[in-house]
Every structure is written in C-alpha cells, then in structure tokens.
Write a protein that binds this DNA or RNA. Structure first.
Ligand SMILES: [Mn+2]
Ligand SMILES: [Mn+2]
Ligand SMILES: [Zn+2]
Ligand SMILES: [Zn+2]
Lengths: 127, 127
DNA sequence: TCAATATTAATAACGGTTACTGTTATTAAT
DNA sequence: ATTAATAACAGTAACCGTTATTAATATTGA
C-alpha cells in the first residue's frame, strides 16, 4: 500500500525524532513547512501507524500520549520536572511477568514499566 | 482535622470497595442515597485523599483514573475485555528498578508495572 | 451571635482526542 | 482523456475525563 504524503511525513517525523513526541509535537514540527496540515490528520495517521505496527504509542499518566519509532521491547522513565522521556532496557522484567502469568489465570498480552523521577539535568538544577 | 460528611463517604467507598473504582464509580455508588452529591465534590475529595496519602491513584492507559485503598506497594493487571483491574505482587521488580537507577543518572521516585491481557472469565468466554 | 473560614452543589471551562462533513487527491476502468 | 469509485484530506464540531469557578451552605471560633 502506498502512503499519502501526509502519512509519510508523520511517520518520518516519529521515526527520525526519537524524543517520544506527542501528536502536537509532530504537528508543530511539520506545520511551519506544510502549512495546511491539520491536527486531526496527525492524530488519524498516528493511530493508523500504530495499528499497522509501524510505531508504538506510549500512554503517559499525566498529559498527552507519546509516539515511539523504536519497536524493540523496552520501557520508559519520565522526568516529573521537565517531562522528557527516556528509554530503559529492563532485563529480567519478562521473567517477572511470566512468573505472574504462571501463578494466575490471567493471559498476558503486553506490559509496560513506567519509572517516575528526576533526570540528570533537573536533579542538578534543584540541589 | 475533621472530615466533611462527603469526604468521609468518598473515603469509605474507596476503602471498602477494593475494585479500583473510578471517580464516576464512586459517584454512582453514593448518588442513590446521597442524592445531592456532586461529581465535582467526588473528584475534589479523591484528589485531597491522594494528597493526604489516604488512598492512591492509578492512571489507566485508556480510560478514567482509578482509586485504590491498598497502600502497600503493588502493581496491576487490567483485562482488555472487561476492564477489571487486578492486584499483583511483583517480587523482584524493586531490584530491577534499583539496578536501572544505579546504572543511570536518573533519580527514581516511583514506578508502576501495568500488565494487559485477558482475565480468567474473559479468556474462557472467547475460546 | 456573629463574622471568618471551609466545603459544597451546580455548572462552565479546559485539554486531549475523536468524529463528522464537504472537498480534494488518487486509482482504475472506460 | 473522461469518468466513476475510493481514499484521504482540512477544517471544525463534538466528546470525555477532569479541573476551575461561583454562589450558596455549613462549620468553626471569638
Ligand atoms: Mn522509547
Ligand atoms: Mn490495587
Ligand atoms: Zn528533567
Ligand atoms: Zn475480563
């Protein structure tokens, strides 16, 4: 299937900017050059790309959903101060989840670990 | 500090119903008897109780926040079918998080594991 | 008793997201 | 090339969960 110009722009923006952008971030990155892009189009295509498995969506406890072009299984830390999202590799977490699945009658489909705290920069600028 | 009648009702509802109710759930449980209770009052007092450390709030990836009277550190599984939320004890997760904290310059304040899947009932009724 | 304070019910406003609508672009068949 | 069918678009209204505002009511304490 061939993609529309807009969908391609939106996909590339997520894939090339590994900052876990929100829909609004993507919109604001593209809007200056592609002046008649609509925010609704960004949301619609981000959802389509998630359904296609091209990108993933990260639900944030407070604030907008974020999108991620890194399809490898990984988790995230979010800085409560500046809102930046960082990738983490969680070796051993799968084992924990599998143990839970084995000791309950729950069928696991997916799981996410989210760590909250302060990033390096924000830790320094607080004292 | 003495609590208002409303706050006490709301607190008791969360503490006595360990189903991880939403604000709307709490409202709907109380409204039939306390006919002039306002949904805004439920939200406001739930927030106050969370600030006081009397209850905790669980952010759900899709849908409303849920509230929990169980203050012990634990995590949750949510059924993608029926939406029910189940408690899980995650032995070993703290170690994983501490290892991440030690190998990064991130200061961890809190963390949550959320597992998605199918509960026992919904697994059966699908085949 | 009376004023100061806290909390409420009701409702408007908000932020993020989705749904609708009429238009434009793409594709495939004549 | 013209047409018809389909897909995607821009623009915007509607939606949903939550928070903020406001005027009224309840509680406290001199
Ligand atoms: Mn990531
Ligand atoms: Mn719980
Ligand atoms: Zn930070
Ligand atoms: Zn279920």
């Amino acid at each position: 299937m061939k993609y529309s110009k807009q969908r391609e722009l939106i996909q590339n923006t997520v894939l090339e900017n590994r900052i876990h952008p929100t829909a609004d971030d993507v919109y604001n990155m593209l809007k200056p050059i592609h002046t008649n892009l609509s925010l609704g189009t960004v949301y619609r295509n981000l959802n389509t790309l998630v359904e296609n498995g091209t990108i993933i969506k990260i639900s944030m406890p407070n604030g907008s959903d974020r999108y991620d072009g890194d399809l490898s299984k990984h988790d995230h830390m979010v800085c409560d101060q500046c809102g930046k999202v960082f990738d983490i590799k969680t070796e051993g977490l799968l084992n924990i989840v599998q143990k839970i699945e084995n000791t309950t009658d729950f069928e696991v489909r997916d799981y996410q670990l989210m760590i909250h705290g302060l990033c390096h920069n924000c830790k320094e600028s607080k004292g």
